[in-house]
């Protein structure tokens, strides 16, 4: 097991390295430089000074070498957009806002998703099932900016129940969390229901029932364990994607999170911040992937890892 873990970590680092390099090149391939938005106002001298300051006027291999050297020292560099601000600090800032929002959204999504899915699976073809699938369908059908605007309009403007923007109070979390979690809830409900029904139809469940085990034990332990495989496949990237894909929600509710930061760093061609975020995101995904694969082993003993 330990050997396997070590191997995986090594592979992950390698992947990360490839990721950084690919991003480095790709980002600089997109047309328009970090300072081109202001180019009409800048004189050639100012432009030259600016490029020199950030080392962008150097040839690509030289830039790459400098960047990697700094990276090994743990220095992600300075943002091109926010003069003088370290990328690490920028990410940290955005992270605290996004994490609190995402954590709650994931929790809500898991609880409600599993709840609805289990209910639908246990009582198929009843009104409970229909209701759960209706909620699921609605959640999949509405784009999240529509949900955001709708919620804002109803709850904040017309009913004055919640503040329109920001995360200043616990009440302010309600709308962004709903907007973020709705889609995952919908997907999760469906997945849980399908997987659970599949598991419940297996022979060992009939066996367990005939043995007289309680419903809770059957569903909660036996069936669930076996149903978890495809669900875990979904949840791991879901969490990672919520972190970044929350751009729209963050943008509309004026939450200074990393989703917004990612989008603006692309628009502004802020190479350093973008690279830094990709590294962070990439590392996160790799960690989640590792956890998911480990989870596979524990859940399904039939899955073996060959070396």
């Amino acid at each position: 097991m330990v050997k396997y873990l070590m191997k995986r970590i090594l592979m992950s680092l390698l992947t990360l390295f490839v990721l950084i390099t690919v991003t480095f090149v790709m980002v600089r391939l997109v047309p328009g430089g970090p300072f081109d938005a202001d180019i009409a106002e800048m004189t050639p001298e100012a432009y030259a000074n600016l490029m020199a300051r950030y080392g962008i006027d150097q040839p690509l291999p030289v830039q790459y070498k400098m960047y990697m050297q700094n990276l090994f020292k743990g220095d992600l560099g300075e943002s091109l957009q926010y003069t003088g601000v370290e990328v690490a600090e920028l990410i940290g800032r955005g992270l605290s806002a996004t994490l609190s929002l995402t954590f709650i959204a994931v929790l809500v999504a898991l609880i409600i998703g599993f709840g609805l899915g289990i209910a639908a699976a246990l009582m198929p073809n009843t009104w409970v099932d229909r209701l759960c699938m209706a909620i699921s369908t609605i959640g999949i059908s509405l784009p999240n900016y529509v949900v955001a605007i709708g919620l804002m309009y109803l709850l904040a403007l017309k009913l004055s129940l919640l503040p329109v923007t920001g995360l200043s109070s616990p009440a302010a979390y309600v709308m962004p969390v709903i907007a973020l979690a709705l889609n995952p809830i919908a997907n999760l409900t469906k997945l849980v229901k399908t997987s659970l029904i599949d598991a419940l139809n297996q022979d060992y469940v009939t066996m367990a029932k005939s043995k007289g085990l309680s419903q809770v034990k059957i569903v909660g332990i036996h069936a669930m364990k076996n149903a978890l495989l495809p669900i875990v496949s979904y949840v791991a990237p879901m969490i990672a994607n919520l972190l970044i894909g929350s751009f729209v929600v963050e943008n509309m509710f004026t939450i200074p999170g990393i989703g917004t930061m990612l989008a603006t760093s692309i628009t502004n061609r802020d190479y350093t911040t973008l690279s830094g975020m990709i590294i962070f995101y990439g590392a996160g995904v790799l960690v989640f992937a590792l956890l998911a694969d480990l989870a596979y082993v524990f859940i399904d003993p039939r899955v073996k890892f060959e070396d």
Binding site: M26, V27, L262, I266
Partner: peptide, 26 residues
């Protein structure tokens, strides 16, 4: 499985890690 699986899944992880917007822009 085995090595092939490892390599192929690593490639999948890389693809996952790059935000969609970047692909599209490119």
């Amino acid at each position: 499985g085995g090595r092939i699986d490892q390599i192929m899944m690593r490639i999948v992880d890389i693809i996952y890690s790059i935000p969609t917007m970047l692909y599209v822009l490119l």
